[in-house]
Amino acid sequence: MSGVGRYLLAGLLAFAVDFGLLFVLRDVLGWPTAWAAGVAFLVSFAFTYTIQRTLGFMSHAPHGRALVRYTILVAVNTVATAVIVSLIDQTAAGWAIGKVVATAATTVWNYFAYRWWVFAADRPTDSPSVREA
């Protein structure tokens, strides 16, 4: 399976977890849409990070660096998702279509962010490192 295929499969699994949580929080527990969308997205954080790191990108990037970068990306995605879902929920399309639209948008920019920034391998430096004796 190609890298894009693995990314999409991992994303589909992550979306199922996120969407299911959004449904439970909003439709079962009665939370406001913006809160439900934001919390569902954050709760799926660990699952999504792990599956994208291991299945989507098979990354060996240092966990600390990757996790900090992933956290920054999640913060951006959380705000974008909550705004998109809330705005579309105010139309006849409803929250579910809003979630699909938000997921489509974040899927596109996340692929590039994951590949070139979050899970990118260390780039070799041009000069050797200097070690103290």
Rank of each mutant, 00 (worst) to 15 (best):
G3T: 08
G3E: 08
V4N: 03
V4G: 03
R6F: 14
Y7R: 11
L9K: 06
L9A: 13
L9G: 04
L12I: 13
L12R: 00
L13Y: 02
A16Q: 03
A16T: 11
F19A: 15
L22S: 06
L22E: 00
F23L: 14
L25P: 01
V28Y: 14
G30D: 06
W31S: 01
P32L: 09
T33N: 15
W35K: 05
A36T: 03
G38F: 12
V39K: 05
A40R: 09
A40L: 12
L42G: 05
L42N: 11
L42K: 06
V43N: 04
S44Q: 00
A46E: 04
F47P: 03
T50N: 10
I51T: 08
Q52D: 05
Q52G: 03
R53P: 04
R53M: 01
R53D: 00
T54Y: 00
L55D: 00
L55H: 02
G56W: 08
S59L: 01
H63V: 12
G64I: 06
L67I: 11
L73V: 08
L73I: 03
V74K: 13
V74R: 15
A75G: 09
N77M: 09
T81S: 07
T81M: 12
A82G: 00
I84T: 14
V85L: 07
L87P: 02
G94H: 06
I97E: 03
I97D: 00
G98S: 08
K99V: 02
V100L: 14
V100G: 06
T103G: 13
T106N: 12
N110E: 11
Y111I: 01
Y111Q: 10
F112P: 04
R115D: 08
W116M: 02
S129Y: 04
V130D: 08
R131M: 13
R131T: 14
A133V: 07
